[in-house]
Amino acid sequence: MDFQLILDSFPDLLKGLVVTLELLLCSLIIGLMIAIPVAIAWVEGNKPVRFFAHFYVTFFRGTPLLVQIFLIYYGLGQLESIRESFLWPLFKEPFFCAVLALSLNTSSYTANIIRGAIKAVPHGEIEAGYAFGMTKFQRYQTIILPQAFKLVLPAYSNEIIIILKATSLASTITIMDLTGVASDIVSNTYRPYEIFISAAILYIAMTFILTRLFRILEIKMNKQIIEW
């Protein structure tokens, strides 16, 4: 194994790691912003709204993420209406398209997780909020969503790890994330073993850190529940 090659490549791999973390953070924030209203609509909406929420989740869970990335990056760019609109400066950027695809994908899984958590909130607590004269918005704000987030934390942490690994697909549309940088170095050095092992170690390190952070958060939340 060429350790000197690993050391020489490490700064470039770290730059790719920064792009990977940017993809992850943007996708999770946007995905969560989409997932919460979709989950609530799925639970509380009328029949057409519930159908739309169910269709949305089924579509993005039922199609491969790589296909979604290609449809957004290559497919939408073929539409004349997109190319002539104010959206074109966004859709011609690979980073935006990758974030959009990752956000839509993770939002579908997260919405399904949150929906299950909302239904698992004890009905008595919701009725108590109703008895105190709370509006539906207030019940969701103070009772349902806080309880639901505690319930979804273990499953949501797994979803974050999945999206972290899924960011590697962004390299297929020329984004120089960790996988993209590793592939570029391999194409120049013809030494895939050392480079991809190094990239794998960085992915494992990120996974370990995220797992530990969520474990600490779970412990703190459980302590708060016991104290309460």
Rank of each mutant, 00 (worst) to 15 (best):
M1Q: 11
L5K: 03
I6F: 15
D8F: 15
S9E: 04
S9P: 03
F10Q: 06
D12S: 15
L14H: 02
L17T: 14
L21Q: 01
L21H: 07
E22W: 15
L23N: 07
L24M: 13
L24E: 06
C26S: 07
L28A: 09
L32F: 15
M33P: 04
I34R: 01
A39C: 02
I40R: 01
A41H: 00
V43K: 05
E44H: 09
P48Q: 09
V49D: 00
V49M: 05
F51P: 01
F51I: 02
F51L: 06
A53M: 00
H54K: 13
Y56H: 01
T58H: 13
F59V: 12
F60K: 00
R61H: 04
G62T: 03
G62D: 03
T63Q: 09
T63H: 05
T63K: 12
I72R: 05
Y73P: 04
Y73V: 06
Y74N: 06
L76R: 02
G77N: 13
G77C: 10
F91E: 03
K92L: 14
P94M: 14
P94N: 09
N105P: 08
N105Q: 03
S107M: 08
S108V: 00
S108Y: 00
T110L: 15
T110Y: 09
T110A: 12
N112R: 03
N112S: 02
I118W: 01
I118F: 12
A120F: 09
A120G: 07
G124K: 13
E127F: 00
E127Y: 03
A128Y: 02
G129F: 04
Y130W: 14
A131W: 09
F132S: 11
M134Y: 15
F137M: 05
T142V: 10
I143L: 05
I144Q: 05
P146V: 02
P146I: 01
Q147C: 15
Q147T: 09
L153N: 03
Y156E: 09
Y156D: 07
S157V: 03
I160G: 06
I161S: 13
I162Y: 06
I163D: 01
L164V: 10
L164F: 10
L169R: 03
A170E: 01
A170T: 01
T174K: 10
L178Y: 14
T179G: 08
T179F: 15
T179Q: 11
D184M: 11
I185Y: 07
V186H: 08
S187A: 10
Y190P: 08
R191A: 14
P192C: 09
P192G: 11
Y193K: 10
A199F: 10
A200W: 10
I201H: 08
L202S: 08
L202A: 04
I204K: 07
I204L: 14
A205G: 09
A205H: 07
M206A: 11
F208R: 08
F208P: 04
I209M: 10
I209R: 07
L210T: 02
R212V: 04
R212F: 10
R215L: 15
R215Q: 12
R215M: 14
E218L: 09
N222I: 05
N222C: 02
Q224M: 14
I225L: 13
I226V: 12
